[in-house]
Amino acid sequence: MPAPGITLGDVRITRVVEWSGPIRTARFIIPDSDEETWRRNEKWLAPDFWTPAGDSYRCRIQTWVLRSEGRTVLVDTGVGNDRDRPQVPQFAGLRTDYLARLREAGVTPEDVDVVVNTHIHYDHVGWNTELRDGAWVPTFPNATYLIPRADHLYFGPDGAHRTGAPRDEHERVRRQGGKLVFDDSIAPVHRAGQTVLWEGSHRIDGNLLLEAAPGHTPGSSVLTLRSGTDRAVFVGDMLHSPVQVLEPGWNSCFCDDLRLAARTRRAYLARAAELRELVIPAHWPGHGAAEVRGDGDGFALSAWAAFPRG
Results as ranks from 00 to 15, higher is better:
residue 2 P to H: 12
residue 3 A to M: 06
residue 8 L to M: 09
residue 22 P to G: 02
residue 23 I to E: 13
residue 27 R to M: 12
residue 27 R to S: 09
residue 29 I to M: 13
residue 34 D to N: 11
residue 41 N to V: 01
residue 48 D to N: 10
residue 58 R to K: 13
residue 61 I to V: 15
residue 61 I to A: 09
residue 75 V to Q: 02
residue 79 V to L: 06
residue 81 N to I: 00
residue 86 P to L: 11
residue 88 V to M: 12
residue 90 Q to H: 04
residue 91 F to P: 00
residue 94 L to Q: 15
residue 97 D to T: 08
residue 102 L to H: 00
residue 115 V to N: 04
residue 117 N to D: 12
residue 118 T to F: 00
residue 123 D to P: 04
residue 124 H to T: 15
residue 126 G to A: 10
residue 127 W to F: 13
residue 128 N to A: 07
residue 135 A to Q: 15
residue 135 A to L: 12
residue 148 P to G: 12
residue 149 R to C: 02
residue 149 R to F: 03
residue 151 D to P: 02
residue 151 D to W: 03
residue 154 Y to C: 09
residue 162 R to F: 07
residue 167 R to T: 08
residue 169 E to V: 10
residue 169 E to P: 01
residue 172 R to W: 11
residue 176 Q to K: 08
residue 182 F to C: 11
residue 195 T to W: 00
residue 196 V to N: 00
residue 197 L to G: 07
residue 199 E to N: 12
residue 201 S to D: 14
residue 206 G to E: 12
residue 215 G to L: 02
residue 217 T to D: 15
residue 219 G to L: 04
residue 224 T to K: 14
residue 226 R to F: 03
residue 229 T to K: 15
residue 232 A to I: 02
residue 232 A to T: 05
residue 240 H to K: 00
residue 242 P to R: 05
residue 245 V to R: 05
residue 247 E to W: 10
residue 248 P to N: 01
residue 250 W to H: 12
residue 251 N to G: 09
residue 255 C to W: 07
residue 260 L to C: 09
residue 275 L to K: 12
residue 277 E to M: 15
residue 281 P to Q: 06
residue 282 A to T: 11
residue 283 H to F: 04
residue 283 H to G: 12
residue 287 H to L: 06
residue 290 A to L: 06
residue 291 E to K: 07
residue 292 V to C: 05
residue 292 V to F: 04
residue 296 G to F: 05
residue 297 D to I: 08
residue 303 A to P: 02
residue 304 W to M: 10
residue 305 A to S: 14
